[in-house]
Design a protein around this nucleic acid. Structure first.
Length: 208
DNA sequence: GTTCCGATTTTCT
DNA sequence: GAAAATCGGAACA
């Protein structure tokens, strides 16, 4: 399998997000390889996106989003959870794709152990859950996934259709149809959002 | 320095 | 459906 290269990430963030669906996330930890398929993502940009951490410009936390594309942006939230993003756009132009859900492929027992749960569909069906299952924390913030041996992404395709919706858990920028997920996949995190049937209808802002 | 609050998850009612 | 858990970053003074 082929690793996604720098040029893949160096594009308009919603495009990168959508095409990241189906790719294989590889995490090497403690001599073990954990593999999972990306099934749900969200795009976050900069000055045009009030929901983004990078909206107000460069800060200590968001500097990774402004840096070279193809790096991991990991942040800690609610005092409990880590979330994994992959940076996009070009140097100086902020952007990142939040990995919201993955489908476990390999190392499932290790993921269960790290999560402390048995049910397969509850293992990685949310951004905080998958970060815990894969052992992702702030030490991986800034990691170059184009070169890293601990965290990287392989090219892959989705079997089914891509669905589009508004993003989850944000208080501004709610109208943007920048959440993409594998339709019908049981690992996609559940939440009430506007769901668009096609990309075209999403662009027009028409439901259904 | 102090305050506010979040790109969440789990558990309880 | 609602609330609690718990902490670091960012904003404001």
């Amino acid at each position: 399998m082929v690793r996604l290269d720098r040029s893949f990430y160096s594009r308009y963030t919603p495009d990168v997000a959508r095409e990241l669906l189906g790719s294989v996330l590889v995490r090497v930890i403690g001599g073990q390889e954990l593999r999972s398929r990306v099934v749900e993502v969200e795009a976050y940009r900069g000055a045009d996106d009030p929901a983004s951490h990078a909206y107000r410009g460069v800060t200590k936390r968001t500097s990774v989003m402004f840096g070279e594309p193809g790096h991991a942006y990991v942040y800690f939230t609610f005092g409990f959870h880590h979330c994994l993003n992959l940076t996009t756009e070009t140097e100086g132009e902020p952007g990142a794709v939040l990995i919201r859900a993955v489908e476990p492929l390999k190392g499932i027992d290790e993921m269960k152990k790290r999560r402390g749960v048995e049910q397969l569909t509850n293992l990685t069906s949310g951004p905080g859950k998958l970060a815990k299952a894969l052992g992702i924390d702030l030490s991986l913030n800034g990691e170059d996934v184009v070169r890293s041996r601990e965290l990287f992404v392989l090219r892959g395709r989705l079997d089914g259709n891509v669905a589009v919706s508004t993003r989850i858990g944000i208080s501004s920028g709610q109208e943007k149809p920048w959440r993409f997920y594998a339709e019908g996949n049981p690992f996609v995190s559940g939440a009430r959002t506007i769901n668009y049937r096609t990309l075209e209808s999403a662009r027009r802002g028409v439901v259904g």
